[in-house]
Amino acid sequence: MERNDAARDRHEGDGRSGFEKFVEATYAQVSRAPFFGVCLVVVVAWGASAPLWPDLKQWQVAIHTVASVVSLLLLVLLENAGRRSEEAAQEKLNVLAEALAALMDSSSAHDRDLQDATRRLREAVGLEERH
């Protein structure tokens, strides 16, 4: 059985950059319960450390600064992961639409309505421009 282009591409090396691999690894870790547990421990440790700080304002600034920096970094990483996930899903939909259009083409030799539906499908997903 011959593989299609998408399956062959998936098995011939992923072509992802080091950053993309880092994003996926980070996403896999921060989207699990242990990461929430680590965050909870940090917040509890911060709360318990209040008596150790000479000034409560500095104590608040410390957690706000750390939380802001970590939040910004995670936001960028998670947005990147989400964008790539969306692109992958869109490519899968395009492949399905292309296969459906090809099937419709093979069955539409004498059916004008099916030919029109095939044309509209190809226009809707831009298959003609991609190939």
Rank of each mutant, 00 (worst) to 15 (best):
M1Y: 06
R3Q: 15
N4S: 07
D5Y: 07
D9C: 08
D9I: 07
R10C: 09
H11D: 13
H11G: 11
E12K: 12
E12H: 13
G15N: 03
G15V: 02
S17Q: 01
G18M: 10
E20N: 06
E20I: 03
E20G: 00
K21G: 08
K21A: 12
F22S: 10
F22G: 07
E24F: 03
E24G: 10
A25D: 13
A28Q: 09
A28N: 12
Q29C: 12
V30F: 02
A33G: 11
A33E: 14
F35Q: 01
V38G: 08
C39K: 07
C39R: 07
L40Q: 09
L40T: 10
V41R: 10
V42W: 03
A45T: 07
A45M: 13
W46H: 15
W46R: 02
W46N: 02
G47W: 04
G47E: 01
G47V: 06
A48Y: 05
A50Y: 05
P51N: 03
P54V: 09
D55R: 09
D55N: 15
Q58E: 12
Q58S: 13
A62F: 14
I63R: 04
T65I: 07
A67H: 08
A67S: 14
S68V: 04
S71H: 06
L72W: 04
L74I: 02
L75A: 15
L77C: 07
L77Y: 00
E79K: 12
A81E: 02
G82Q: 01
G82S: 04
R83Q: 11
R84V: 00
S85N: 14
E86K: 11
A89L: 14
Q90H: 10
E91C: 05
K92F: 06
L93H: 09
L93S: 10
N94E: 09
N94P: 02
V95G: 02
V95N: 06
L96M: 14
A97F: 01
E98P: 01
A99T: 09
A99W: 02
L100V: 07
L100H: 05
A102N: 11
M104R: 03
D105T: 11
D105E: 15
D105H: 11
A109N: 05
A109C: 05
H110K: 11
D111P: 00
D111Q: 06
R112G: 02
Q115L: 01
Q115V: 00
A117R: 00
R120H: 12
R120A: 14
E123F: 03
V125G: 04
G126M: 01
L127K: 01
E128G: 06
E128Y: 01
E129Q: 15
H131D: 14
